[in-house]
Design a binder for these strands. Structure first.
Lengths: 120, 120
DNA sequence: CTAATATATGAATGATTGTTCATATGTTCA
DNA sequence: TGAACATATGAACAATCATTCATATATTAG
């Protein structure tokens, strides 16, 4: 099948052209779609989820997180950067140490929704 | 640094041992962590997000979704399987055609939370 | 300034993943 | 039964990504 043939792919599309039009109009723009996908992609890694769980409890320095999760400082630092770029965590420098904390409480809300789904 | 050295990685961990202990206890078990990560990983792909958006509007057959998104039937079918395994969509066969629909309204809630965050 | 400590980062690598292609399965109709 | 259609699926390939290693930056103490 050729995906470019937008209307002749099967017998059903002609019977629901109003719906097809509604879908087309309600699709979010490319930028929103990209940001949304990117946000969930960040949540889709167990190291990053673990880091977020750690930060639910308290702000913490890179090395403590690494220690808690049994991973290297470098690995954690790389992932903290990803989380920071997604504005899920924020860093605060105090001398040599950088303390990371959750950026806001959307994070917890999103994770809770995820937990809701898997608990179902 | 060796990540196995759970206590001697920096000067701070000793000053917050109560918090470290609290974090340890509140970390979800491995299974939950895996399911949660897996769920968000499924949301973390723009094709799958697009499919979910299409299904917000109405149930639809594989080939219509493919047509709407300008992708091949095979690609969509593969992704529908992923969405089905994550129990985000469900399929209903009617003759030759299989209609897919959202499994429940957690899906919309989770995506809305994501939109909330990026709109912020 | 130098040494020590905490964090950040670029490059390399192994693993994972989305799409494609070819083909199989399942259903209807003649 | 056989042809036509809708969907599903396994294997292969290219692209993406998490971690590691080595090293750079930043801060403090001496």
């Amino acid at each position: 099948m050729n995906a470019r043939d937008t209307i002749d792919c099967c017998d059903y599309i002609h019977t629901h052209e109003d719906i097809v039009e509604a879908v087309r109009q309600k699709m979010p723009d490319e930028d929103t779609l990209y940001d949304l996908t990117e946000l969930f992609r960040i949540f889709g890694d167990s190291t990053r989820i673990r880091i977020l769980y750690v930060l639910f409890e308290a702000e913490m320095c890179v090395c403590d997180i690494a220690s808690l999760l049994g991973m290297t400082q470098s690995a954690i630092s790389h992932q903290l950067r990803a989380l920071k770029n997604a504005r899920l965590v924020k860093g605060r420098r105090e001398g040599k140490t950088v303390f990371y904390a959750l950026a806001d409480d959307h994070v917890k809300t999103i994770i809770d929704q995820g937990l809701n789904h898997i608990a179902e």
